[in-house]
Design a binder for these strands. Sequence first.
DNA 1: CTAGGGTTAG
Length: 745
Amino acid sequence: MSLASTIRLSYFHSSLKSYIERQDSKSALLLLRQFLQSTVKPNDFTFSLLLKSYASSSSALNPIIAKIEVNQTRNHLVKSGIDQFVYVSTALLDLYMKLGCVESARGVFGEMPQRDVVSWNALLCGYSRNGYDIDALDLFVQMLREGLAPQITTLVGLIPSCGRCDNLFPGMCIHGMGIKAGIDFDSQVKNALTSMYAKCGDLGAAKLLFEEMEEKTVVSWNTMIGAYGQNGFFDEALLMFKRMLEESFEVNSVTVLNLLSTSNCAELIHCYVIKSGLNNDVFVITSLVCVYAKCGDTVSAELLNMLSPHDNLVSLTAIISSYGEKGNIGLVVEYFSRVQKSGLKMDAIAMVSILHGIKDPAHSNVGIAFHCYAIKSGLCIKTLVANGLISMYSNFNDIDAALSLFYEMPEKPLITWNSVISGCVQAGMAREAMEVFCQMMMFGQSSDSVTIASLLSGCSQLAYLQFGKRLHSYVLRHDLETEDFVETSLIDMYTKCGSIECAERVFKSINEPCLATWNTMISCYSLNGFERKALTCYIEMLEQRIEPDKITFLGVLAACTHGGLVHEGKTCFQVMTEQVGLVPNLQHCACMVGLLGRAGLFEEAMSFIQNMDIEPDSAVWGALLNACRIHQEIRLGESLAKKLYLLDYRNGGLYVLMSNLYAATGRWDDVERVRKMMKGTEGDGCTGVSQIEVPSVVKLNPLILWLRVFSRSSQLLKFSAGVLPIRLYMLDRLRDAQTGDKRYL
DNA sequence: CTAGGGTTAG
């Protein structure tokens, strides 16, 4: 190469270097294009600089365009043979990883004629950063087999993968290897290990590592604050923060982020943010938006969002979720169009937040439109989005749609099975849910506490006491009885199936029942006519210093209403509104009206209705009408019936009550008239159904049953009430047989 | 190395 060419090349390189500093890959590429037209040939160093400029600005690039450009660069490297330089190919691999193109990076690695430790590290760290945690662990093993010793970079890349998989064992092995190799003293390795132990739930180990660390950095403190927060120790997290301030460490945005997601005192942290001048950090603002959105304060969330220089997807997603939670579909759609207009790209989480907000069957057209969007944008292949769609269609009571989505999914993780099972139950199709559960067992998919809780709820619906009991055994066998949700579902199942003794037994076996469990037990007594027991249970709950909520008071009020306990009911309502400070909803009001009306206190009931802060609905007026029936108050009853008719003429209860009122006073002509009116409204679908369980299934021939189970396993068939419990029973016994429990076969 | 939005459950 001539001297002139060498000078030109080095001049060109220094220009490229300045673009790296300015994170301007666009200009770097333009410059290279110009240069290629001249007679001087770029060399390996030129390309390493170009790749570096891309890496420096990778987070700000449009990933699709960047990928195309990098692909072109790769072609160039191959044609000119520069890809034979290990360091250039490694830089290319690293760049692909930074752009999230894991497969391309894997390809580059595969084609490399030789690799050094840096290449292995780049691939491993790339896997880890992109969430390919299992691949990272596999690669590490492969790396060791090739005879390469792990370095600090290797461990720093690998350890977070163990944490994310919640995989303590490999994490501990790697810790041990670090000690043997003498690289566990590195502060980055120690921080990574601390975080890993915390994520796997071993706070003791995390704390030990943190305390014995000699050179703690901000990252170490942040890690420890996060460790306490993630495991629910909010006070300890705050104490850690206090200690950090005392030892005068500089607080950064990650500290605030950890504190915000940790604590329940958002305002306090917000004040600190403003005082410490971190309030301009985009991440901090986003985090604050999320906190306010999560607790339903959309006003503050939106105000804060306006402080952000650009719209960002995370903030908008949080706001969308918040409006979805409130059922404000209009604003959900509006914020979606805002995402579209601002040029942000919807991702799976944003998509599922929208779907989650569409619950009302009246909005099914909107839901279907978003389903179309999910298909067009390619997001519907993501499991997360598919699950969201299944739940959405279940909310519309469109089980066929939910099931067809489900069967089309190529991969069905546990959560998908759970989505479809709970979807069926919530849509009132518990029998379908149990069908799916059978298929799940056939498939070899194991279930968890969520599956069982959903199925128990299905048993309540169908009054399948036998199957419910079998699920209870399953719970005991699999040590799931410690889960709040499962315990509560069990009590609910026994209550609804009429077996109050069993419900009580489950309740008494629980060490520290949570609020929902107490609530269920109170409602259980109330539903079964044990008003006094319901009240005693409520008092016991208060003695345990558990703060009652709206559901608690609903249960207690209902008990008072059923039992005619006027004084207790009034006191309870007073406690709720004045002492606990809860705003009564329509259901509470209906209970109170029923309570007063049943006691014949019509004037008090009417003045109660007039003093209500919310507009009374058909349930409130209906409660009073029911009282009229009991006390044979024809005149008031008729005027109430008119009101109710105007509110909701399709409400079947109205006609039944009026008919009974007329019947009680011997006005048979009016009874006839009301019944005709009800038929005119085509009824409201409240027709009662009675069913019984098939007893003593054990006597049936197991072989025939098993054949039946097999022949029908491939498709979803509607079963008669009798056969399904038998199938479930058989499956259960078969599994017992597989796991060595031969008692039943 | 630490970090923000999400799906299943009474």
